[in-house]
Amino acid sequence: MAIRLGQLIEQLGGSLHGDPDFLVQKISPLETATPSSLAFLSNPLYRSQLATTQAGCVIVSPEMQSSVPAGSACIVSSNPYLYFAKVTQFWRQQQVAADRDALVHPSAVVHPQAVVHPTARIGPLCVVEAGARVGAHSWLKSRVTVGEQCQVGERCILHSGVVIGADGFGFAPHADGWVKIEQLGAVRIGNDVEIGANTSIDRGALADTVIEDGVKLDNQIQIGHNCHIGAHTAMAGCVGVAGSAKIGKHCTFGGAAMILGHLTIADNVHISSGSLVSRSISEPGQYTGFYPLAKNADWEKTAAIVRNLGTMREKLRQLEKITKNKE
């Protein structure tokens, strides 16, 4: 596949310095680019790679334009990284447009009562169960399961192994064991959501689990039943969210962060990797928290001490002042 530079400018804007009929045959990093490649530079730390790149065209900021090697075209953008992201989207759209023969793979199982938009792509070995809906231009990669009555919005991407609508973890204790609580809700996923490989989103017990527009989930994430994830929140790999947690908009969660159930997290909260969120958060900001594993009683004592360290420090300072004055 090849795309003219002029076609990119027509679609995405930017200022082209070079031949609009130049054909881009691949998108490459600066250090491995060839004369038929399009590359980009967004971080000035990699300016040395720009000086030696073989790329036929480079996306750069106005400040970096003068550093583009002689003979290479450039696209000047105020935000080269964002422009690069849009180029990758346009490139993928052209690839998909060239391969429209099988929007639903022959090996996929789509229930007659499911509703799949004519522009959606259903990959190999996918299962779309009764009453499920898949919106326009969404793409289910291989082995994705969308459970009964669950909804996937428009322009969503679900990567291999994603499971939407498995039963939530609900059991009532009984003297003889556990009694299953039937999960009667579903999962509702908004538009422009991307879900990484082998991520699971459980259906609600009674009300639905909700993933709002623009949410981005990495690989191997667990979202428990009845959770509500606000628009444009992003989670890195192996995050776990226990049931009935309500997470705000524009939040971020580093890898392996854990959120306990029934908590409420405000908009614009950012959780560091490996942190355990054990209480609700009402104010935006960056949060980090973890303790070494210990017996619960010891851990609670340690947590109480850490929580009061600020007060203890002030008291120590006051005692030091008193001691010095007595001297």
Rank of each mutant, 00 (worst) to 15 (best):
259 I>Y: 07
42 S>F: 06
272 S>Q: 13
71 G>C: 09
232 H>I: 06
289 G>W: 10
125 L>W: 12
35 P>A: 11
164 I>D: 10
272 S>L: 07
9 I>Q: 04
199 T>S: 15
212 E>P: 04
290 F>N: 06
279 R>S: 14
258 M>C: 00
189 I>C: 09
5 L>P: 04
129 E>L: 12
261 G>H: 09
284 P>T: 08
201 I>Q: 03
293 L>S: 07
44 P>E: 00
236 A>N: 03
217 L>H: 10
206 L>I: 15
2 A>I: 01
93 Q>F: 01
140 L>H: 11
218 D>K: 04
196 G>C: 00
146 V>L: 03
136 A>R: 00
302 T>N: 15
84 F>S: 11
281 I>P: 03
159 H>V: 03
261 G>L: 08
184 L>Q: 13
13 G>D: 08
226 N>P: 05
172 A>K: 04
116 V>A: 03
326 K>S: 14
106 P>W: 12
161 G>D: 08
188 R>D: 06
51 A>R: 11
161 G>H: 03
251 C>M: 08
171 F>G: 03
190 G>Y: 01
76 V>N: 10
141 K>S: 12
62 P>I: 03
315 K>R: 15
22 F>Y: 01
288 T>Q: 02
204 G>F: 01
2 A>Y: 09
241 V>K: 10
237 G>R: 08
310 G>K: 13
270 H>A: 03
71 G>W: 07
233 T>Y: 01
86 K>A: 02
64 M>D: 15
321 K>H: 14
251 C>K: 11
258 M>R: 13
194 E>T: 00
115 V>D: 04
59 I>H: 11
191 N>S: 08
97 A>H: 05
315 K>S: 00
245 A>L: 00
38 L>T: 05
50 L>D: 08
32 T>W: 01
305 I>V: 14
13 G>M: 00
124 P>Y: 03
35 P>C: 13
152 V>Q: 08
61 S>M: 04
296 N>H: 13
213 D>M: 06
256 A>D: 00
279 R>F: 05
42 S>A: 15
29 P>S: 13
4 R>V: 04
252 T>Q: 13
63 E>R: 15
125 L>P: 04
66 S>E: 12
29 P>N: 02
109 V>C: 06
180 K>C: 04
98 A>R: 14
152 V>E: 09
305 I>L: 15
44 P>C: 02
317 R>Q: 15
295 K>E: 15
327 E>Y: 10
60 V>L: 13
259 I>R: 10
49 Q>G: 11
107 S>C: 04
260 L>D: 14
221 I>V: 07
136 A>N: 02
153 G>A: 07
124 P>A: 15
123 G>P: 00
307 R>E: 03
9 I>E: 13
254 G>V: 09
157 I>R: 10
221 I>N: 07
114 A>D: 05
241 V>H: 07
31 E>R: 09
192 D>K: 02
100 R>Y: 05
125 L>H: 14
21 D>M: 08
212 E>M: 11
207 A>I: 02
189 I>A: 05
65 Q>N: 06
145 T>H: 12
98 A>P: 03
322 I>Q: 13
103 L>M: 10
250 H>T: 01
126 C>A: 12
158 L>D: 04
65 Q>T: 06
138 S>D: 06
38 L>V: 06
223 I>V: 15
128 V>E: 11
251 C>P: 10
180 K>D: 04
179 V>F: 11
203 R>Q: 02
128 V>C: 00
